[in-house]
């Protein structure tokens, strides 16, 4: 088992973003590997930004556990293409955390910035705080967002959560913002709280909203009451502005008349 602790050093310009896609468990298996991160337009060694401590040895990514400490709210792309092992983030994390990840676990004790788990294929992201916009979505112009795995957000999510989602599962325990699951094709999106305008242009998949869906879109057909885990809930099919092959379960909804 290998434990890596990365503690963010104090920085002269704390708001400058750091791009650190090299931080994945697999990369720490090679003891000779050099780790470079980008601070704005300057390429730096990882030790310029973090105090690095490595204990133990590992034969596979699954045996590596990385802990990130300190103010990591501006560190971007942590865990990009991660394929096993664990990353624990003790504070907040910057954008694009867990992009394209296929296996392993990322646990965030604080909040996550936008594009959490963008286009992920597998593995799990657990965020104990809030996530900003585009959790589990796709890149600009991309046809498919998240394709597999699980994102669980204990707080609220921003706008466009699960945009172009095409597989996997997102569970948001708080509220979601505007247009969760817009252009969703497959997969399951669960929102325990409220949201507005869910699942526009839905062409497949499933969305469950246990709070109130505000400004519900008129192009979903009410298919009557049903129950999920003994909760009374209305089933809608849609979106009928396209072929209407998706399903939304909504506890309460309000339309914009």
């Amino acid at each position: 088992m290998m434990k890596v602790i990365l503690e963010v050093k104090e920085r002269h310009k704390p708001n400058l973003p750091i791009e650190a896609e090299c931080i994945t468990p697999k990369n720490f298996l090679d003891p000779e590997r050099e780790f470079h991160v980008w601070k704005g337009n300057k390429e730096l060694d990882i030790t310029d930004i973090f105090h690095v401590r490595k204990d133990g040895t590992a034969k596979s990514a699954e045996q590596v556990e990385i802990t990130i400490r300190g103010d990591s709210s501006h560190i971007k792309r942590v865990g990009e293409y991660m394929d096993g092992g664990k990353i624990l983030i003790e504070g907040d994390i910057g954008m694009h955390c867990g992009n394209f990840m296929s296996a392993g676990l990322i646990e965030i004790n604080g909040n996550a910035d936008s594009w959490l788990g963008r286009e992920m294929h597998g593995g799990k992201i657990l965020c104990h705080g809030d996530a900003m916009d585009y959790a589990g979505s796709g890149y600009r112009g991309e046809k498919q967002g998240m394709r597999g795995g699980l994102i669980e957000i204990m707080g609220d999510a921003g706008d466009f959560a699960g945009e172009t989602m095409a597989g996997g599962e997102i569970i948001i325990h708080g509220n979601a913002g505007d247009m969760p699951g817009v252009d969703i094709k497959d997969g399951r999106l669960t929102i325990m709280g409220d949201c507005s305008r869910p699942c526009g242009n839905m062409s497949g998949g499933e969305c469950r909203i246990f709070g109130t869906a505000y400004d519900m879109l008129p192009t979903f057909r009410n298919e009557g009451l049903t129950a999920i885990d003994s909760v009374q809930i209305t089933r809608f099919s849609g979106d009928y502005m396209s072929r209407g092959l998706g399903t939304i379960y909504v506890a309460n909804c309000k339309y914009m008349d």
Binding site: R197, G200, D215, P218, R221, M241
Partner: peptide, 24 residues
């Protein structure tokens, strides 16, 4: 968005599901 969606549904012959008023 709701008005554009409604117009598209009408074009697809789904006018029966459009409520009496959409976003005013």
């Amino acid at each position: 968005y709701a008005v554009l969606s409604s117009l598209r549904a009408i074009l697809r012959g789904k006018s029966d599901m459009i409520p009496d008023s959409v976003a005013g």
